[in-house]
């Protein structure tokens, strides 16, 4: 628990914008911070991240402001290298911002603040599927029996119940990514961060996993930040889509997806609302992709 609080505080070390709240060590005290308006789960203000590359520094994110609503599924699209991953890695506490503040809704009781699903294969090869899925719970100090119940129910939901005792190398890539998703949900974080989790899967697996993700998500309605490069996927999954600008990353526009759930990609594709949203997102995105291409210089 102590380590958790430290991690939160680290995410808030900044140019002195929020010193008062930083002084409050308990998560409960933190929620009383007036900085977080009702109905908002994550508030980001003036977030800047510079990477020191030795002789020069690269600005990945430039004074980004964002409010993520409580319980929303926010999809993030943007040209490659625009800082999408840096943004959610900073929220996850894997990077420390250069400037700016992130306020996050504190989790109830001992649940973790964030959990992340990575794009690349990040399932521990030395643990069985069960142990992988229960990893976050184990780190929270949840007892073995409580852990088992939760792990088994998630294995059932993700269709992995027969593979609980298997090792990852005995599973296909799609199966391993299921384990990855199940692991994040099992940890039951306040905020779920997903960095192109299906980006490396083939289309069939991707469609199946998208549906499964929606099934699990609908039950918990967890605040989720989901990076994708696919406009289809963003419209299919998201409550809103955040389009980021080309490097350095800022918020270009946020678009509401007012298509009722449950959504199905096959029917969506013929839907007029889907097509107009697709055009709208793609117009914004392609503008930025072209801009990022214009910025490109040959590597020295």
């Amino acid at each position: 628990m102590e380590g958790k609080v430290d991690a939160v505080l680290k995410r808030r070390t900044d140019a002195g914008m929020d010193r008062v709240a930083v002084g409050e060590r308990s998560a409960v005290g933190w929620s009383r911070s007036p900085a977080l308006p009702p109905g908002v789960s994550v508030k980001i203000s003036g977030l800047t991240k510079e990477f020191d590359m030795g002789d020069r520094s690269v600005v990945a994110i430039d004074r980004l402001d964002l409010a993520v609503r409580d319980g929303e599924f926010l999809c993030i699209v943007g040209p490659s290298g625009c800082g999408k991953t840096t943004l959610i890695r900073t929220i996850a506490g894997l990077e420390t911002q250069t400037n700016g503040t992130i306020w996050m809704k504190p989790p109830a009781n001992r649940r973790p603040l964030t959990a992340m699903v990575f794009q690349t294969d990040s399932v521990f090869p030395w643990m069985t599927v069960e142990d992988n899925v229960g990893y976050g719970l184990k780190m929270q100090g949840v007892s073995k029996s409580d852990r088992d119940a939760k792990v088994q129910s998630l294995l059932r939901v993700t269709g992995l119940e027969k593979f609980g005792k298997s090792y990852p190398h005995q599973l296909s890539g799609g199966m391993r990514q299921r384990v990855n998703v199940a692991r994040a949900f099992a940890a039951d974080p306040e905020i779920l961060l997903m960095d192109e989790p299906f980006g490396l899967l083939d289309e069939q697996n991707r469609m199946i996993l998208q549906k499964e993700l929606m099934d699990i998500w609908r039950e918990s309605r967890k605040t989720t930040l989901f990076i994708t490069h696919s406009v289809d996927e963003a419209i299919l999954l998201g409550d809103r889509i955040l389009v980021m600008t080309a490097h350095p990353g800022r918020v270009k526009e946020i678009i509401d997806i007012d298509i009722p759930r449950p959504r199905d990609l096959i029917t969506l594709r013929g839907d007029a609302r889907f097509i107009s949203l697709y055009k709208q997102v793609w117009a914004l995105l392609s503008e930025e992709v072209l801009r990022s291409r214009a910025q490109e210089t040959p590597h020295s």
Binding site: P112, D121, Y135, G136, K138, M139, Q140
Partner: peptide
């Protein structure tokens, strides 16, 4: 990436060594 996973799931130093 395994270091990142351990960190995001709140592993302590000791947890990290052992797991």
């Amino acid at each position: 990436i395994y270091l990142d996973v351990a960190k995001t799931f709140g592993a302590s130093k000791k947890d990290f060594y052992l797991t």
